[in-house]
């Protein structure tokens, strides 16, 4: 008989791993990725591949040469950050800008804080917002869907969000007639005005990804559902009060709302741990998003809303404790 291993219980493990969770999120992004290829063709492919490759490279290089630690790229979190960053960019963005975005996302957003698990802000959003502020022209001109062979030469057009902003600015509800129908926006089958970043083109593809993650128990429903419900109710009230505000379905299916609610706000590291905390976080993100979209300087508020609430996550964690066993009132 050889030596027996002595360790404390439990002696079995679920078999789950970080890599497995990251992989499930990546799989959940596949429908949206395919749809973006269908809508934006070559441009989408170039942006996604560049972003993923650059993020993985930077994480590897930083762990290898600066931190001199064991590379962690195998956990797929860098690849996921890259994919999410790519989803947040226009399909005509030049490669060098994407690489800068990836460097900021991984280098500043993640590794300076200590790598996976330690970052306060969602790295992909740090990268995106950095680009948005640094390259406002390139980051706010969006190619029209359907130009499959085009990359930086693609014709740009107005996004549903810019149409909504114009309607509010001019106080003219008739501008909203330029918006595609809610159903087209859900499916991503735009006949006109179909411009935007890669990942926001089809709300349905993102919802399929949501269903996959729920099925695999990668995330719980709390954050996406609370964001979506809050946005729907708040945008609905605004719409009823004044028709220059778009109807709530169009608000939900436009811009990065679904992408943000399902994939960005649910980032494990930067979101609260208890379900109560997650609901508070989701409601606040939904509220802030509608406020920024309708009353702020930028047409899209999702990224900012999530980053702001990321900063509140430690505080929420401190005050929102799960319900302890035995706290339930005796019936």
């Amino acid at each position: 008989m050889g030596k027996l291993t002595i360790s404390l219980s439990p002696h079995v493990h679920s078999g789950d791993s970080v890599q497995n969770n990251m992989l499930n999120v990546i799989i959940a992004l596949v429908p949206a990725a395919l749809f973006s290829l269908y809508a934006f063709g070559v441009g989408a492919a170039v942006v996604m591949l560049t972003s993923v490759a650059a993020c993985v490279f930077f994480e590897w290089a930083i762990t290898r040469f600066i931190l001199k630690a064991e590379p962690t790229v195998c956990d797929l979190s860098a690849a996921l950050t890259g994919l999410l960053l790519g989803f947040n960019l226009p399909s005509n963005l030049p490669i060098w800008i994407i690489i800068i975005g990836a460097l900021v996302a991984i280098g500043i957003g993640k590794m300076t804080f200590g790598g996976l698990g330690c970052n306060i802000f969602n790295p992909a959003l740090v990268g995106r917002v950095f680009l948005l502020i640094s390259f406002p022209v390139q980051m706010t001109t969006w190619p029209e869907a359907g130009q499959l062979g085009a990359y930086t030469d693609a014709t740009t057009g107005a996004t549903p969000l810019s149409v909504m902003t114009t309607a509010i600015k001019n106080g003219d509800a008739s501008v909203l007639s330029q918006l595609p129908s809610s159903m087209d926006m859900l499916l991503g089958t735009y006949s006109q005005g179909g411009a935007g970043c890669l990942g926001e083109i089809s709300a349905l593809a993102l919802l399929i990804g949501f269903a996959w993650m729920l099925l695999k128990k990668t995330i719980t429903w709390h954050i996406p559902v609370s964001i979506i419900c809050t946005v729907f109710v708040f945008a609905g009230l605004l719409h009823v009060a004044n028709p220059v505000y778009a109807n709530p379905f169009q608000v939900l299916f436009s811009g990065g709302l679904m992408l943000g609610a399902i994939f960005m706000a649910t980032d494990y590291v930067s979101s609260p741990m208890s379900s109560k905390g997650q609901l508070i976080y989701g409601v606040a993100i939904g509220f802030l998003t509608v406020v920024i979209r309708n009353f702020g300087a930028y047409p899209e508020g999702m990224s900012f809303a999530i980053l702001i609430m990321n900063a509140f996550t430690p505080l929420i964690n401190n005050y929102c404790k799960p319900k302890r066993f035995g706290e339930v009132v005796k019936k």
Binding site: T5, S7, H11, V12, H13, D16, S17, V18, N21, T72, D75, S77, G115, L116, G117, C118, T220, Y268, V269, S271, M273, S274, S275, K321, P322, K323, R324, F325, E327
Partner: peptide, 28 residues
């Protein structure tokens, strides 16, 4: 094979331990 524990990596704050705890505690 069963006797060995998996390789430890950093906490990714996924909250799965919080969902799993039958006493409503925060194991992490």
């Amino acid at each position: 094979k069963e006797a060995k524990r998996g390789k430890v990596s950093s906490c990714i704050r996924c909250a799965k331990c919080v969902s799993a705890c039958p006493m409503g505690l925060e194991p992490f």
